[in-house]
Every structure is written in structure tokens, then in C-alpha cells.
Design a protein around this nucleic acid. Structure first.
Lengths: 345, 345
DNA sequence: CCAATAAATGGGAACGCTCCCATAAAATAA
DNA sequence: TTATTTTATGGGAGCGTTCCCATTTATTGG
């Protein structure tokens, strides 16, 4: 049980002045006697006084808190975004409260209530793979609390978004595989409810089309992103009568898992089968063989999302903007697609 | 600018009843007419009502917020702890606010003020490598706000702590190197201000002593944990007239970096030089050669810290306990110390 | 049918602070 | 010296709740 915390009233009593004067001294208000101010400041220090942001937030109806909602923390992607967002938020005088929904729609909805109750001034969110209904997020718009989406965005809501050019990233990844001579390229993708799945799939399809490679539905596997299932699907691909000579995985964890399976099958990477991922996770450069991938500017994503959110927070609801910031991806060639490639990084 | 948020007063006005009745309906108080309650609940739902935790926290002087202070987010260790802590906190009805001090004492002190102003109910903290004075943390004790340390603890403060058995972990790691036949074992350690550095160093020394291996100060390098400096020190070690045949690194990022350098020097791992780390980072199993390491129960650490903190929060200050929970490490043998070892994991 | 008890409701204070308005004290102008 | 401005201070309301006490309304017993 917390003790009584020193309040401006305690200081006022001690100094025999009014709480108003103490408040002024503490907030650097011009109308205070320098001497009084000094006394107050010294006593405040001595009494371990710390202003109660709860009370201030209540008055100003501004909590200086930004909520961050992410679907999971298993891959390194979301933790990295959160870290970058936290830093940028701090620079802007906000602190963050983070909720993670474990890819569950129900949890996401529940977390939404917590955010509301905590009086967040704004929200940056990446939805779960299950989220199809967005009423729980639209509440925020109605209440005049801005939202910025990143990575996994809601297409039907007209709000700011920060994404990477998934289509083009996928296109470049697949084209890279083609240019290294691969002809039967499989694609391990996520659920079609996520726009990133759709966009990356389209990039994949269009790259094949451009190079006149026929699309084989057998080689396109859409799964729920639970990493332990990758084994099954990769084994399945390898067991086809006409197996793929390359795999484009929707993200690096998937690709890394695929590499493990392929190594167990004694196949040579990239000669027998090449692999490319998406996101450039920390481990991708370290794994053997090192993983070619499309890098995303993850820190930039977290930072931009916060910046766009802070702008919205400071705007009246009528002046809300709904710009979508599209960041570019970059092809990182490593040994999983090109033997003995000397990596830039 | 946020709009006016629905309050119990708005609901009361609409229904022509008093705010007290609305409050009772909303909090499941026994003394409300079932019918009134139903009306209130329905209208609350319709008006997107959400209780204002700020106001409630102000009254109850309980914010249901736990502060987490960590020194950095570059290694995967602290993010993992934070994620685990967040989950456990949520289970206990708390949300967390995280601050990261970037290994700066000044920032740590500043963050401390934010925590206080945010009225956290408790704090779990791992100090920076620079922190030698603990006044900023002792304030919390005086105010009756409990602290639990983890990983990098403050020895002079008598509060609960969650650590791993660093001494024994180091001892086992070094003994493992000795048992694989290594005789000149270097140690890359952190600054001596951190108790983990001291304890791991002692484990290292005692393991050598037990096996009658002379200590060579030339082989013990203490550095500030900025990962880019590892290159310099490892190169230095390799250039010695009598270079080491093994390295025990204080943590996995250091070990991984060391592996990169050693590979550049065309030395064979583990034949020419073996490496062992500490913590079992995600990348350690994936790197080539895979890294032997002492695994720590990271999730367990975050979870325990929160549990111990919550217990303290619910106790009166006079009954505060100061138990130290020591978790065990486990030797994970991989290819950086034993050629072609079939890993358990 | 009226007193006594139970159930339901209303109103005020309080949490710690800021902000506005009123007042008091000091400094300047007439 | 008195009026006027400036500077410094005090007091009250309000932010959105909960909690306590008082009051009203409904229910039960004699």
C-alpha cells in the first residue's frame, strides 16, 4: 500500500502560503515572488515532491500517453517497431502503453477498452490476422482520438497509415530469384485477410507474369503464420513430383524455418533450392547460409507512425489528414540465393 | 484535440437519474434496481462510454501501472524480459510503462521522475552500466513504492531481486571449455561496476583454479559492452604471441561478434579457438557455427519480477520482503565448442 | 393500516491539480 | 498625499470518479 504522497497542499501548509502560490512556483508562472519560488522549489525537492500527472491529465484531458497495439511479439519485427516508437514518443513528450493481442481478435477488442480507459491521446495499431470487423477501432475516431495504422492496416478506415511497398518488394524478390535462373518458385504466404499477404502475392504473381513463367497454384501456400507449421508445408513442397527450385517466404522467420527443414533434407541452398525472405531480421545475416531478404526500414516505420500520430493529435478532428506513407524496401542479396555472395552488410 | 468524452454525468442527465446511481450501475453495486442498471448499461454502450481510469486512479491513488526501467534495447535480452513482464502484468491487472535509458545514468534519473509523476504502483529495474549512485531509486522506497531489481541489481538496496546464478553459470561454461581440452581461455567481460561482471569473472577464475590452470591477466578483457568494440579486443587477443584457444564471452552478442571476427581470420571454430556465450539469444542457434552458451530463463525472470513486485504492492511497507530469487542457468552445447555436436535444441 | 425495515436513489466531499477571479500589498504616477 | 498601476497572493470551481451519508420509495410485519 502506497504511502501518502507529498502534494502542493503539504508544501503550502509547511510554508504558510496558499496552494495557488505553490502551484505557480512549481510551474514557472511569472506572477510569483522570486524568493517565495525559491523556498517552494527547495522544500519540494526536500519533500521528494513530484507532480501528479494523473491529476493534471484529468484537468487537461490529455494523458500524454500513446497506445500501441500489436498482434504479436514473437518475431523481432514488432518489438523493434515498439522500441523505435517509444524513443520517438519520448522525444515528443509522450509515453507509451503497449498491448499485444497474441493474434487474437477478442484480445484486441479487450485491449482497445484498456486503451480507452487509460485515456490515450492516440493509438498506433497493427491488427491481428483474425481482425475483420473494425468497430472497436472506429470508436476512437468517433471520440476524436486519432489512430495511425502500420504494417497490417485496415483498408476500410480512412486514417493515416505507414506501410512499405509490399507489392514492389515482393516483385523485386521474385524477380531476383528469376534472374538467378530459378523457374519453379514457390510462395509461402499469410492469410488472405491481411493486406500484406495480398500485396506480396500480387507482386509474386506479376513478377512471374513479366517473365512468362506459368503460375502453379500447387506452389502457392497460404498459412496462418504459426511458425511451427512451416515444417509441414516445406516438406510438402519438397515432396511434390515437380518440386520448386526456389521459395519466396512472406517473412524472415518463415524463411529461416524453411532453411532448417531444407538442410535436414540434405538439399543444397541455393543450388537445389534458393530462399528469399522479407524484413531482414537480426538473425538473417547470421544464419548459415545467410538469408537473402527484402529489408524494411523498421525504425523508420515506428518513428513515422508516431510522428504522424502526434500531428493528428495536435490537429482538430475536422482537419485530420489521412495520408499513407509508403516506405521502400531494399533487396539484400546473401547466400541463400547467390552462392558465396559478398554481402554489403 | 480530443472531443468531450462521455461521462457518467452525461448518462445520468439522459436518464434523468443521479450520477451516483449511474456509478453504482456501472460498478455492479448491489444497491441498484435491476431495471435501472439495465438502462444505464445499454445507454453506456450506445454512447461509447468508457470509465476514466485517470479519475479512478486519482481517487484510489492506485494507477494500476507498473514501471519497467531497462538500460538498453539493442540486445534481445531486455525486449524479451519486457514482453514477458508485460504479459504477467496484464494477468495481474496492471499495464506497464517502459523506459529505456540507453545506458546513461542521467537518462535513468530523468526517467525515474517520469515514473514518479505517472504514479506507478511499483517498479522493476535493471540499472545502467554507469549507475553508481542510487538516490533516485531510494526515493521510491521512501514513498512506499516497491522496487524489484532484475539482472543488473543494486547491491546496497535491500529489496527483492531476480537474478540468475551468474557465478555458477560462468563456472560451468569455463569448466566445459576446459573439459573439451582448452587450456588458454580468454574472458571478455563487462565493466566491473556491474555485479554480473564481477560474478561471472569470479566463476571464470574459480573454474580455472579448480583445474589448476594459471590465470593470465592478458586474457581477461573488461570492456564497456558497446558491441562494435569487440572487434578490436578479439583481434588483439588473436595477435598475442601466445593467443587463447577459447573465449568465454559475457553475453551472446559479444560471442557472436567474436565469431565473425575469428571467421575473418580464417581460424577454425572450435578446433583453433572455441567460443561460449551467455544467455542463449535467438540468433545463437542459427549462427554458423552455432554458439554454445549458458541459457537463462528470460521469460521466467520477467514473470518472477512482476510477481514479486505485485506481492510487494499488496503488502504494507512494514511487511516488505527482500527475497532474492536466483534462477539457474543451463549449459547449451553447440558447435562453437564441440564439433558436430547434435544439439538438444 | 401504520410503524419498522429494506431497497433504491440523490447530493456532497474528496482525490491533486490548474485556471480564473478577487483581493492585498507594493510600486509608480499625478 | 492620493489615485493608479503593477506584482503577489488567496480562494473557489472544476476535471470524472467513488464513497459516505441522508433521503425517498417500496416492502414487510404486527
Amino acid at each position: 500500500m502506497k504511502k501518502h504522497q507529498t502534494t502542493i497542499f503539504d508544501i503550502a501548509r509547511e510554508l504558510n502560503i496558499s496552494k495557488s502560490t505553490v502551484s505557480r512556483a512549481l510551474t514557472n508562472h511569472p506572477n510569483v515572488n522570486e524568493h517565495t519560488k525559491k523556498l517552494v522549489l527547495e522544500l519540494a525537492e526536500k519533500m521528494d515532491y513530484q507532480r501528479n500527472m494523473l491529476a493534471i491529465s484529468l484537468i487537461t484531458s490529455k494523458s500524454n500517453t500513446i497506445g500501441i497495439m500489436v498482434p504479436e511479439f514473437r518475431s523481432s519485427y514488432f518489438p523493434k517497431v515498439v522500441v523505435a516508437a517509444q524513443e520517438e514518443a519520448a522525444l515528443n513528450g509522450y509515453h507509451i502503453i503497449v498491448s499485444q493481442s497474441n493474434e487474437s481478435y477478442e484480445t484486441e477488442v479487450a485491449n482497445t477498452k484498456v486503451m480507452l480507459a487509460s485515456q490515450v491521446d492516440g493509438l498506433i495499431v497493427s491488427i491481428t490476422k483474425e481482425t475483420l470487423n473494425f468497430d472497436h477501432l472506429k470508436v476512437f475516431q468517433r471520440k476524436g482520438i486519432p489512430i495511425v495504422f502500420f504494417n497490417r492496416v485496415c483498408e476500410e478506415m480512412i486514417v493515416p497509415k505507414v506501410i512499405v511497398n509490399d507489392y514492389e518488394g515482393a516483385f523485386k524478390a521474385v524477380e531476383h530469384l528469376i534472374l538467378t535462373g530459378k523457374k519453379r518458385i514457390a510462395h509461402l504466404t499469410g492469410p488472405s485477410s491481411l493486406s500484406i499477404s495480398k500485396k506480396r502475392l500480387n507482386g509474386y504473381l506479376d513478377a512471374l507474369k513479366k517473365h512468362d513463367i506459368p503460375v502453379d497454384d500447387e506452389l502457392i501456400i497460404s498459412y496462418d503464420l504459426s511458425i511451427n507449421k512451416v515444417n509441414i508445408y516445406v516438406k510438402h513442397l519438397l515432396s511434390l513430383k515437380n518440386p520448386p527450385d526456389a521459395i519466396f517466404a512472406i517473412n524472415d522467420p518463415t524463411a529461416i524455418q524453411a532453411i532448417q527443414v531444407i538442410k535436414q533434407h540434405q538439399l543444397k541452398i541455393p543450388e537445389d533450392i534458393a530462399i528469399i525472405g522479407f524484413s531482414d531480421d537480426y538473425a538473417s545475416a547470421l544464419i548459415e547460409p545467410s538469408l537473402s531478404t527484402m529489408s524494411q526500414p523498421i525504425e523508420e516505420i515506428g518513428k513515422s507512425a508516431i510522428q504522424m500520430l502526434v500531428e493528428q493529435i495536435n490537429r482538430d478532428v475536422e482537419n485530420w489528414k489521412a495520408t499513407t506513407k509508403i516506405l521502400e524496401t531494399e533487396l539484400i542479396i546473401r547466400n541463400s540465393t547467390v552462392k558465396n555472395h559478398i554481402a554489403k552488410y
